[in-house]
Design a protein around this nucleic acid. Structure first.
Lengths: 325, 325
DNA sequence: CTGTTAGCGCATTCAC
DNA sequence: GTGAATGCGCTAACAG
């Protein structure tokens, strides 16, 4: 059995309360004694019992993280950032997968609070109405989502993409999204269309409504660039164009969104927009912690994004020369 | 405040112990009373305090999951399976990222046990020596890894790939791995080389040692197929070949490993080997739970894999016709 | 069959 | 500054 407060108290001839105070720095204990107690504690290899502490304080030191759709590599990446932020504060992260449906998500939320999470960070499914859970919650979605706590500046990202394409000489671009029911995607598309300058035209295509035209039809229609709302969409586009014998970006340029791990690996590298995941994770956690301390939740925030220019929009066909991968 | 055992005990004029027994089904309580107590419990919306239960029983109902390298989509996918398996047993999953180094991994392990994990599921970094942690551990790596608990049959996967390529008429293949220090990769490569029939030749290339030859040199050397030890390697190969103007699989075939989410999305679809992640997760969890019940750990196990044949090895160039994605 | 009792390990009153 | 006492909510012994 691990040593407990009582063991180290007895070993030093003081009371458990004093040891507790000394280790936590809370109560008033003389500096000298404090030091000696701390030494003895580390000497014995004392490790506080989180369970006892949780029972006593009502805080488990664990926050719950609810993610949708593990197939999108963005979410694991975000999870990593949340875990890092939590771990820097000595907190643990309980994960749950909102497998498929909003009901499953609701159950996942409940489960995490029942399992003792002090607060929740949620990447909500579309159309989520947050039920009252009794613990602080931070939502990471899109600026236009009601109740959103923090998110990347998806509009700005869209604008950066279009601006970049304009500078590269593109005047007619096809904006390709998956679903217009996604706030994130519509925000990105809005950013793109708003940024179209007078001499540019853009058409928006939602893949859930209509398939992508055949590669050569795109060229015939005068499109010189495909701007996808996600790398996960851009990758099939890119490979499909290449499989059809087109050269990217010589024949047509492609851009994505989110800078997934594979985006730097493909040839040519995918031009994309990177979210500042660490900042978003920090912000979400801060919001939860603030609410835990009975502070008001900080106002919703939007985090700047960064354009990453790679081969799918820059013409040098270096792809044949570079070593791989 | 939530109702506690005492509240429902008082409401029914019985003792807390009886309520506890009734709800857990442990002690001997008359069926009639049991039912009435359960009804009252749900009526009051009783939710047991995991913290109190954990303090009392020494079990937190949480297992820790340690993953390396979030950039590899396999690990999030595995995490999802572990979470599903845990959730089916009413357990929670605390995650930790063994960020980069083995020391970080060691700290992550410690942190999880300090945070109260009852047991650990670990996907170890290369060369990991498991320190004694005081809780049951299951390791998911490769059959050849000492101390491994359960894993996919990587050798079989390699064999399936080579056999498939042979049936498709390939006789000279280049096997491409990242690092020969990875047990998983060496097991896969071993499976491949062992499966080479008499009239086949295979060369092994580790990308950490030497770069991939230029695409046209591969053809000149007579290679008709590239067999990668991971989809994450196959994807750059595929796109690089395509960017160089080669047709896959007409000019050269490509295979991967692990069936990452993007592998079905690229064009042509990537032929690959899928691990049975749910089975692996179940097995790992079972091992931990068995050890928790003081049963001996079940013997190491290997889980069959499945070959997924897609466009990168099947010649019809349907990729121009199919809708996308 | 059911109730009483006694902690699990800690943090917090309140006396001294 | 320090210590003794109390209870967080639950379950495992044992006593009835």
């Amino acid at each position: 059995m691990n040593p407990k407060l009582e063991d180290i108290a007895r070993a030093m001839g003081v009371s458990t309360a004093t040891v507790s105070n000394a280790l936590s720095g809370k109560g008033r204990v003389s500096e000298a004694l404090k030091d000696r107690i701390r030494q003895e504690a580390t000497r014995l290899g004392y490790v506080p019992s989180v369970q006892a502490r949780a029972l006593r304080t009502g805080r488990s030191g664990v926050i719950g993280l609810v993610l949708p759709d593990i197939a999108n590599p963005l979410f694991p990446a975000l999870a990593q950032s949340v875990e890092a932020a939590a771990q820097a504060r000595g907190l643990g992260v309980l994960i749950a997968d909102s497998r498929g449906t909003r009901e499953a998500q609701a159950q996942a939320l409940q489960r995490l609070v029942r399992q003792g999470a002090d607060g929740l960070v949620v990447v909500p499914r579309r159309g989520t109405q947050m039920p009252p859970l009794g613990v602080p919650v931070a939502m990471i979605d899109a600026a236009s989502t009601p109740g959103n706590t923090i998110c990347a500046d998806h509009r700005q990202g869209g604008a950066l993409i279009v601006e970049h394409l304009r500078l590269r000489g593109h005047r007619k671009i096809l904006i390709v999204g998956q679903s217009s029911a996604s706030r994130v995607q519509t925000d990105r598309v809005a950013g793109m269309t708003e940024a179209l300058s007078g001499d540019m035209t853009g058409r928006v295509l939602w893949l859930e409504d209509a398939p992508l035209p055949a590669p050569y039809d795109l060229l015939a229609d005068g499109f010189t660039a495909l701007a996808a709302t996600s790398d996960l969409i851009a990758l099939p586009l890119l490979t499909r164009l290449q499989a059809a014998g087109l050269r990217v970006p010589r024949d047509i340029a492609v851009t994505g969104f989110d800078n997934h791990a594979f985006s730097a690996l493909v040839a040519p590298g995918l031009t994309t927009v990177a979210q500042d995941l660490p900042a978003i994770a920090e912000g979400a956690l801060e919001s939860v912690l603030a609410q835990l301390d009975a502070h008001p939740a900080p106002p919703p925030r939007t985090v700047p994004v960064e354009l990453l220019v790679r081969g799918t929009t820059t013409s040098t066909n270096q792809t044949d020369k570079e070593t791989c991968p």
